[in-house]
Amino acid sequence: MKVAVPVKDETLQFFGNAGHTPFFAVYTVKGAGMFRAFELEGLRANPRTDLDHDHDHEDEHHQCSHDDNDEAHAKAHLVMGEALEDCDFIVVGRACKNTAAAMAEYGVHIRKYNGDPAKAEAVLRSVSAQLA
């Protein structure tokens, strides 16, 4: 099983807004229960080309300047689904309806993380029971 976690950079610091993350850390999940292990496969850049803001400081209340029914914006999210189509899950702090639709189209299931900002592996351990 593979799980994608939105991260800021090589530090693997969780980035809550999945649609606007700079990178996805992709992990292979091995074992089960308390013996579950997470092996980092690598980082994948977010392939969206319509992002035009600074990712250095994630804004918890960020609102895009697009209409919720903006077809071009919805299609921009599809590239994320395509980039993660080999993943079974993505763990998010939040995801807009376009991100959710893109992931669903590519068979990637969304799991929510509500904890404090943490490194990707700590986030995975926190949601581990939901990855089934």
Results as ranks from 00 to 15, higher is better:
residue 21 T to E: 07
residue 67 D to F: 03
residue 104 A to G: 07
residue 132 A to W: 00
residue 9 D to F: 04
residue 37 A to K: 09
residue 19 G to R: 08
residue 102 A to L: 09
residue 59 D to M: 04
residue 27 Y to N: 03
residue 72 A to S: 12
residue 77 H to K: 03
residue 73 H to L: 13
residue 124 L to Y: 02
residue 55 H to F: 10
residue 96 C to D: 13
residue 76 A to V: 13
residue 50 D to L: 08
residue 83 A to G: 07
residue 71 E to Q: 13
residue 92 V to H: 11
residue 106 Y to M: 12
residue 5 V to Q: 04
residue 5 V to S: 06
residue 96 C to N: 14
residue 130 Q to V: 00
residue 96 C to P: 01
residue 132 A to N: 07
residue 3 V to M: 03
residue 63 Q to R: 11
residue 7 V to E: 06
residue 48 R to H: 10
residue 120 A to I: 04
residue 15 F to L: 06
residue 90 I to K: 00
residue 45 A to Q: 07
residue 118 A to P: 11
residue 111 R to E: 05
residue 60 E to M: 07
residue 16 G to L: 01
residue 75 K to N: 15
residue 13 Q to L: 15
residue 127 V to E: 00
residue 118 A to Q: 15
residue 5 V to L: 04
residue 79 V to F: 03
residue 94 R to V: 05
residue 7 V to G: 04
residue 15 F to H: 15
residue 129 A to L: 02
residue 86 D to R: 01
residue 55 H to N: 12
residue 35 F to V: 00
residue 132 A to K: 06
residue 47 P to W: 08
residue 76 A to K: 07
residue 104 A to I: 13
residue 53 H to Q: 08
residue 19 G to K: 01
residue 8 K to F: 10
residue 10 E to C: 01
residue 116 D to W: 07
residue 6 P to V: 05
residue 51 L to C: 04
residue 22 P to L: 09
residue 128 S to M: 05
residue 125 R to G: 06
residue 96 C to G: 15
residue 86 D to S: 12
residue 28 T to S: 09
residue 44 R to E: 03
residue 66 H to Y: 12
residue 71 E to N: 04
residue 73 H to Q: 13
residue 9 D to W: 04
